[in-house]
């Protein structure tokens, strides 16, 4: 696998081997010295045209644990502000010797465009409303390992609650959860469901109360305040009343149900309880797993060579 642009492009086998490899990275991350020499001499450049400190730090930590060199391209202080084109930026960085670009951009499809301008690997760290594949990977790992169910989510129901329409996290996760066999329910106001959801293998519900007692995983999306301006929901208060996780709804959850959130949380909007009080909360576990899942992706795209693997003994 040379690039990771979208969950859609992965086979189920590729997805499960990334999850299995993440187990190794979790072991490495738990050591007193969490570092292995695997990617020594490789350079990973994080190029974030849309700021996201946590995702960028997670990738950079992952690269460092694998002994790769890291390079950070800070759009705010760069020549992008002097009118340099995206392509020139990438080609300039590539000329410095970059083996993998980790790209975040507000427009869908930018990571794919970049693959045509460089020989380096490209990892999509979020593009527009399109995809955020490493988030899906860390979520799948968090969920499957919490349940101890291998890589199999069949018979489990995941509710994704909130602004599905503008969410790359939702698009990646719907695909990934479904590939592992889970049933996905989208819980959102109609105005926040994208028109194409009709073709997705999902159910929908109009209020969190309709599903809260039956689900195995409650996946809360971040409700972006700027959606108010577009008049897609009447008010944040009304949104919370129907879709927020209140303490009353938290009590209705199954005793082993998990609660996940990709962060950053809007306390008082989509989550009205302290996650520390939720036994099923995996929100910090997601952050921890994020580093390991990204190690797994970096290792996979950067370790492969053209020489076939050997089955012989040493």
């Amino acid at each position: 696998m040379k690039h990771l642009l979208s969950i859609e492009e992965l086979t189920t086998t590729q997805l499960t081997s990334l999850l299995d490899l993440t187990d190794h990275m979790v072991e490495i991350s738990g050591r007193p010295v969490p570092k292995v020499p695997a990617l020594r001499g490789r350079t990973v450049a994080s190029v974030f045209f849309e700021e996201s400190t946590r995702t960028r730090l997670s990738f950079e930590t992952a690269a460092k644990r694998l002994s790769a060199e890291t390079m950070t391209f800070n759009v705010g202080t760069s020549s992008v502000n002097k009118g340099e084109s995206l392509r020139d930026t990438i080609e300039t960085l590539a000329a410095m010797g970059v083996d993998a670009f980790v790209v975040r951009h507000k427009s869908s499809g930018v990571p794919r465009m970049i693959t045509e301008w460089t020989d380096a690997s490209v990892i999509n760290a979020g593009d527009g409303w399109h995809q955020h594949p490493t988030q899906a990977l860390l979520d799948c790992h968090t969920i499957t390992r919490s349940f101890g169910c291998g890589n199999d989510l069949s018979g489990r129901t995941v509710a994704i609650v909130g602004d599905v329409k503008h969410s790359r996290v939702a698009r990646s996760n719907i695909r990934a959860f479904t590939m592992l066999g889970a049933e996905v329910v989208l819980v959102a106001p109609r105005t926040l469901l994208p028109p194409e959801f009709i073709d997705w293998p999902v159910r929908t519900a109009d209020a969190l109360d309709d599903v809260v007692g039956d689900i195995d995983v409650l996946y809360l999306l971040r409700m972006q305040r700027e959606r108010m301006d577009a008049a897609l929901v009447p008010s944040l208060g009304e949104y919370s009343a129907r879709f927020g996780l209140t303490s009353q709804r938290a009590r209705q959850l199954k005793h082993d149900a998990l609660v996940l959130h990709p962060g950053p949380m809007n306390r008082g909007v989509e989550i009205l309880v302290d996650p520390a009080d939720l036994p099923g909360s995996r929100i910090l576990e997601q952050v921890r797993t994020g580093v390991s899942a990204r190690m797994s992706v970096l290792y996979t795209v950067l370790s492969g060579g053209s020489v076939p693997p050997t089955g012989g003994a040493e």
């Binding site: 490899l21 020499p37 695997a38 001499g41 370790s303 693997p309």
Partner: peptide
Amino acid sequence: MYRDDIALRPVV
């Protein structure tokens, strides 16, 4: 993760 041929072939 410690092999010297990681860059040459897929090491799983």
